[in-house]
Computed example of a mutant assay.
Amino acid sequence: MTKRHITYLACTTVLLGGLAGTTPASAAHRLHVVRPGESIQKAVDAARSGDTVLVMGGTYHESVTVRTPGLTLRGMGRNTMIRPAQKGATASTRCLEGGDGICVVGAKDKPLTDVTVADLSVGGFARTGLWSTGTDRLTVRRVTADGNGQWGIAEEHSTRGVFRENTARRNGDAGLFLANSVTAEQGAADTGGTVLARNHLADNRIGITVRRLRDLTVTRNEVTGNCAGVFVVGDENEPRAGALTISGNRVERNNKYCAKTARLPALQGSGIVLTGTERTLVTRNTVTGHSGTSPLSGGIVLFKSFVGARSEQNRITGNHVEDNSPADLVDQEAAKSGNAFDGNACRVSRPAGLC
């Protein structure tokens, strides 16, 4: 590997936990700088745990796979753009089964720990902008995922992730998608406290999808211009999906129309939807300006899942919900479901009396 491909700066003997003169050389962390025309993947492959791969501004036509624990992959903001490889290029074209931009890959029995991806843009990929599986304490921060065929940023089989200050727009399915598994039918997984905070989701099919998970917080996100804003999905498997907090989000005018799929009817005008979930707290959200005729349309909607699993013992409290049609609050569950609505600022509900 040449100096042109990876530059080790003189300051790359960054010593953590003490001064240079007192810390063993084995503790030194290196900085690998990648410039336009060079390979990000080669720098990632050369890096060790604790190292940082810094990608300078420019457009890089490749896919990148991270399998090294403790690695930081960082760009220079939106000026660092990762795009699909061009035809005939020698750069990496695969990321797992192909079609993804960045893949962070561990295993269910041995998670990949403490990886950070930050300050870059990834878009135009057939499947997912940034895909992660089998990780623990993954941090994704200030990443822009734009115009990917399926998901903007997605994760499965993972715990204790932090997704903060990202932008996901114009993706074919969800801007942010988190699940226990994307292929297997199984009970909800405990994330150990994963956080989705201060992200901006716009012009996707669904802004945020949380599927078959527990112990997760969705807070202070801006979700607008999607077909549906926030979708929390469970089913009949055990343990049930739920024990989540959705708080302080601004969910506005998600009135884009999306045709039905094999899983869902046509979507339009859905703010926050809970389907087949239990013990979820929805509080202090602003949910306004939704309108549609889908079975899932409305401001905050509790909907029995399409496999018949009920939404039970959820609490909807202290939200500002107005100018939503057919109603601000919609509870399609039976009276004995134990769902509680209190302290919400709203005008119209189905059934009446929830406001």
Results as ranks from 00 to 15, higher is better:
Arg142Val: 00
Asn237Thr: 15
Val321Tyr: 02
Ala20Trp: 04
Val230Ala: 05
Thr286His: 08
Thr13Met: 06
Thr133Lys: 04
Met56Thr: 12
Ala10His: 04
Gln41Ser: 11
Leu302Glu: 04
Thr144Met: 03
Glu252Asp: 10
Val122Leu: 06
Gly175Arg: 00
Ile40Ala: 07
Gly101Gln: 12
Glu62Pro: 01
Arg279Asn: 15
Gly269Thr: 10
Val195Leu: 15
Gly298Ile: 11
Ala262Asp: 14
Asn221Met: 05
Gly292Phe: 10
Ala126His: 05
Arg240Val: 09
Leu216Lys: 02
Trp151Gln: 15
Ala20Leu: 05
Ser305Thr: 13
Thr80Gln: 06
Glu252Cys: 01
Leu264Lys: 03
Ser39His: 04
Cys227Gly: 12
Thr183Lys: 08
Ser92His: 02
Gly187Val: 12
Arg205Trp: 00
Arg310Thr: 13
Pro111Leu: 04
Gly298Trp: 03
Ala266Gln: 10
Asp203Ala: 15
Val117Pro: 06
Gly192Lys: 02
Val232Tyr: 06
Val251His: 03
Ser349Gly: 12
Ala197Val: 12
Gly248Thr: 03
Leu73Gly: 12
His29Met: 10
Ser158Met: 09
Arg211Asp: 15
Arg35Gln: 14
Ile82Phe: 01
Asn148Cys: 06
Cys346Ser: 08
Ile300Leu: 13
His61Lys: 01
Asn314Phe: 01
Thr219Arg: 11
Thr245Tyr: 01
Gly229Asn: 02
Leu296Asp: 10
Lys42Thr: 08
Ala107Arg: 14
Thr275Leu: 14
Val105Glu: 15
Ala189Thr: 08
Ser92Pro: 02
Ala334Val: 11
Cys346Gln: 07
Val162Glu: 04
